[in-house]
Each structure stands twice: as structure tokens, then as C-alpha cells.
Simulated scan of single mutants.
Amino acid sequence: MISWERKALNFINQTSRWDKEKHISSFLAFSISLVKNLVEADIALQLEFEDENTAKVKNASPVFLNDIVLNPDPVRKLLYKHAFKSIYWPVIPPEPENVFPELLRALSSAVIIPVNTEPHNSVIILGWSEPQEFSQPFQECTETIRLRLKEILTQSQQQLYFQGIAMRFAAVLHTLPHAVIFINNDGFSGWVNQQAADLLQLSGPGEQLPAILSDAMTQLRNKTTNTEEIYNTAIHLFSSPDKSITGWEWQMAAPAAKTYRVSCLPVTSQQVNGRLWIFEE
């Protein structure tokens, strides 16, 4: 006897492990493939509403279904008709009720699972070549899976969105002519652009541990000709109310013989609490 409750828990457990261990970009594809295996479907896919005129198949198993494009209007009408609840077809109806003839060809049974997320809505479609009964325990299982899939879709979209923002800001910061160093107060995260990596003689730009950055900045300070002045200014900086400074001069000894105007600014938000250092020649 099939334990649908156990299958639902299996889905939650496996997707939770993937969430912690694997890359987010393949999270959704893995989750849909896992659903297909757990319910022993012959096809499984995501139909995403890309805009008002386009719904495209993604993360399909078998993969030849990927990139099929459908008119989203009939799909939306079907979802509205069923109040955006999962639709169970023990026997796939003929057109026009079956709005997926390109996807469900040669299949006997199907389940359509709406997953409402913004900015794009998605539908997960499962299909079987043999007739299915879709018992109440099965429906409870798919409802649990639907809720978890909604979490996965939302999480995937958010992380990919923030990854895109991070890449854009990193590209901007890497093109600045100044050395930019950020050290978070959490003791675990820091960041430098290419100019800062060169200045501090680090292996490369990007994420760096605060301890490594602090040590590199200490070594840089020790190469200055006004080390004592810098040290005394630093004491006043960290004891001042606003804990910020601009126009602070670090005069480098030979062979560099450069003078940097240094700014140190606090960076505080709900997610970030640290210091931004800017070295300008």
C-alpha cells in the first residue's frame, strides 16, 4: 500500500537538503523531477506565464517538452474556473477543456497544480500514460507538495534576483578608480574590488574574511611615512559619535611614494552593519 504521507515528507526532506547543499539555479528542476519520481508520473513540467501573451514550458521531464510555447489565456480561464486549486483529471477531457493538447498527447490522466508567485505565475503539470484514481491521500500529498513548490519557486526567484543585483553592483564597483573595501562587523564577511585587492596585495577581488582584510590594512599602514599620525587619527575616528572620516591622508613610503586620501564610513541597515573604506590616489 502506497504511503502518500511518507512521499510528501520525503519531498520536503529532500528539497530541504538541496536548499542547504546545492546551487539555487538547479533547485526547481531537481524539485520537479523529484515530484515526477515520487508520484511515478510519465511527464512533469513547469509552465511559466512569462507575459500576457506567452506561457513557456521549463524544467520538463522528458526534456524534449522544454521551450514549447502556449497561449496563456485558455490556461488562465481554466485556473479561474477551478478557483486556482489543483485540478485532477483521472481521464483527460477533450478540447476545449483540455487546454494542454500539445503537452498531454497520448496520456490518460493528469494533475495541474497552480503555484501562484509574483511576478510570474507558474503551473506544474504531471501526466500518466495509464489511468489514475487520485485518491484523497494522493490529493493531500500533492497539496503538501504544492505548498512546498510555492516556497521553492519564491525562493528561487528571490535568490536569482538578488544574485543579479549583486553581480551588477560588483561590476560597477570593480570599474571605480578607487580602492573600495567593506568589512562587516559580523566577523565573517568582507569584500574588495580589484583596485583594493591590488593595493592590499590580495589574491583577487570579491569576498574576503574580515581578519584577512584587517591584517592586510595593518600591513599597508605600516608602509606609510605618517604611521603614528594615522594611528592617532584612528583612535579619534573609532571614538567619535558618527565614526566617519574623509580626506584622511595615508602617505606611502618609497618605492610607491603615493599619497592616498582615505574615507571611512559606517554602513548600517537591517542586513548590514560594517565599515566602508575608500582609498583615492
Rank of each mutant, 00 (worst) to 15 (best):
K85W: 04
A234I: 03
L104G: 02
I230K: 03
H23T: 03
I125N: 01
L9I: 05
A29G: 09
T268I: 13
E133L: 12
Q195F: 01
C141M: 13
L79Y: 05
V123E: 02
F169D: 10
D42R: 09
E229V: 12
I112V: 15
E97Q: 14
P74I: 07
E50Y: 10
V39A: 06
E228I: 13
Q201F: 06
L173V: 11
I230S: 04
G204H: 10
Q194W: 09
N193G: 11
A211C: 05
A253V: 05
A83S: 15
S122T: 07
R105H: 11
N273C: 14
F84L: 07
G127V: 01
Q157P: 02
S3V: 11
E50D: 09
L126M: 06
H178L: 06
K77W: 04
G247V: 10
A83I: 11
K243W: 00
L149E: 04
K20G: 00
T246L: 03
L209W: 08
S33V: 00
R221A: 13
C141T: 03
P62S: 12
E151Q: 15
I145C: 08
N53E: 13
G190Q: 04
G187D: 02
N121M: 14
S189G: 08
A60H: 03
E281A: 09
I113Q: 02
A254L: 14
Q157D: 11
F134L: 04
P255M: 12
